[in-house]
Simulated assay, not measured.
Amino acid sequence: MSVAALPKVELHLHHEGAAPPAFIRQLAHEKKIDLSRIFRADSTYEFRDFAHFLLVYDAACEVLQTPEDFRRLTLAILEESAANGVVYTETFVSPDFCGGGDLKAWQEYVHAIHEAGDEAERKFGITMRSVVTCIRHRGPDLARLSAHCAAETAGDRIVGFGMGGNEGMGKQGDFAWSFDCAREAGLRLTTHAGEFGGPDSVRDAVRDLGVERLGHGVRAIEDADLVHELADRGIVLEVCPGSNVVLGLYPDIAAHPIQRLREAGVKVTVSTDDPPFFHTTMAREYEMLNAAFGWEEPDFAEINKTALHAAFCDEDTRARVAQRLETS
């Protein structure tokens, strides 16, 4: 079996950021919204750098206006993930894009998303759970609304809380109230750190927010003491190699630190982040890691074991997914 065909667990996938360009173009056509500015001639997303990427991301979300839009989106992204061998995924969903932080509206979006998730599990054999995310560059006040929405819908499908967005805006600790609120509701915690923010952002996330996983976290490699701390504490990194290369953190996959982090005892996993933006899939990530570092089936089995153990789902779901990994 080729590594691309292996069953996979993905922990870091932005729900809206996984929207296929053709899906967004179709919705824009239906709603008579001109989004031509965000697409290249070949119909892929166009952006210059991370700041511009965030603007294009928000523009694409302009057409995602109703729970029905998110129901359709969920089916589209899960079909694509399943086609690339993903058997379990955690997607980041933000109340900012699903009702603007209004709890009643958020509940309607959640119902539509998870109804589609159940349908996708029946059709495609993929299990989805949701991590509610606040958006860092929109500030702590809106983050509190997201945390409240997360806390009020916590359960077997809403399993975690996290934060995405621009690491250059504010500090991790500014959002401590929101993370405490989510923790008290029984949600498990992750946050983006160590992508553009550097090693200090990783320390801040672990110290100030008490997270057990980190989105990206790869800049920790620049601080040997921090690498040892992550390994000792068992903090899991949601590593997105293809994304890191496209956004300019590293010149190519061979220069990416995922192998060095793994060799240092840090728990690493593999994800796609916003796959159509970064021209990747989970199958493609596996192929790149195989080519760059010689990872074979036993290596990916270890990566998936780490990811499944770090997943925020309940134990019954974990056992069911483990069986799929063994029998696929």
Score class of each variant (00 low, 15 high):
Leu187Gln: 01
Pro241Trp: 13
Pro20Lys: 00
Lys104Glu: 14
Asp180Cys: 06
Ala19Gln: 06
Arg233Ala: 13
Ala185Asn: 02
Cys181Met: 13
Ala5Val: 09
Glu263Lys: 12
Arg122Tyr: 08
Thr127Leu: 13
Val218Gln: 02
Gly139Pro: 05
Glu108Ile: 00
Gly186Arg: 02
Pro140His: 00
Lys171His: 13
Val218Cys: 09
Gly125His: 11
Pro298Asp: 07
Asn304Trp: 12
Gly155Glu: 05
Ala205Val: 05
Arg318Gln: 13
Leu103Arg: 12
Ile221Val: 12
Met128Asn: 10
Val270Asp: 10
His111Gly: 07
Ala150Cys: 05
Pro7Gln: 10
Ala116Leu: 02
Asp274Phe: 13
Val202Asn: 08
Arg136Tyr: 07
Val236Gln: 03
Phe179Thr: 04
Asn244Asp: 12
His192Leu: 04
Lys32Gly: 11
Glu285Met: 00
Asp174Ser: 04
Val227Thr: 05
Gln65Arg: 09
Lys31Gln: 09
Glu30Phe: 11
Asp208Ala: 12
Gln172Ala: 09
Arg213Val: 00
Leu249Asp: 07
His137Met: 05
Ala41Glu: 14
Ala231Phe: 04
Val159Gly: 00
Glu296Asn: 14
Tyr45Ser: 05
Tyr250Thr: 02
Arg320Pro: 07
Gly217Asp: 03
Asp69Thr: 00
Thr153Phe: 07
Phe278Asp: 02
Gly217Phe: 06
Gln26Glu: 13
Tyr57Ile: 02
Thr153His: 06
Asp141Arg: 12
Asn166Arg: 07
Ala19Met: 11
Arg71Lys: 11
Tyr286Glu: 08
Asp42Glu: 15
Leu35Arg: 00
Ile135Gly: 01
Glu79Asn: 09
Gln107Trp: 04
Leu249Phe: 14
His228Met: 09
Glu108Arg: 07
Gly17Tyr: 05
Glu115Ile: 04
Arg183Lys: 10
Ser178Phe: 01
Ala120Cys: 07
Glu152Gln: 12
Tyr88Pro: 01
Arg122Cys: 08
Ile303Val: 14
Glu222Tyr: 09
Thr44Val: 15
Leu209Arg: 01
Pro20Ile: 03
Thr280Met: 03
Arg207Leu: 09
Glu10Lys: 05
Lys104Asn: 15
Val270Thr: 09
Gly162Leu: 01
Ala120Pro: 15
Val270Trp: 04
Ile24Ser: 01
Phe97Leu: 06
Asp141Ile: 02
Gly194Thr: 05
Leu249Glu: 10
Ala154Glu: 03
Arg129Thr: 14
Asp208Tyr: 11
Arg284Asp: 10
His52Glu: 13
Leu209Asn: 03
Ala185Cys: 05
Asn166Val: 04
Gly265Met: 15
Gly160Met: 06
Ala4Trp: 08
Trp295Leu: 15
Asp34Glu: 08
Ala22Thr: 13
Ala154Thr: 01
Gly125Val: 11
Ala264Val: 08
Glu115Cys: 05
Ala193Asp: 03
Arg157Val: 04
Val202Tyr: 03
Gly194Tyr: 03
Val110Gln: 00
Ala147Cys: 06
Gln172Trp: 02
Asp69Glu: 04
Val202Ser: 08
Arg129Met: 11
Thr269Met: 03
Ser328Leu: 14
Glu297His: 14
Arg213Glu: 02
Thr191Cys: 11
Lys31Gly: 10
Leu64Lys: 00
Ser81Phe: 11
Phe53Asp: 06
Asp42Trp: 15
Glu79Pro: 04
Glu263Phe: 07
Glu184Gly: 15
Val86Asn: 12
Asn304Ser: 10
Arg262Glu: 11
Pro276Val: 03
Glu16Asp: 10
Asp225Arg: 12
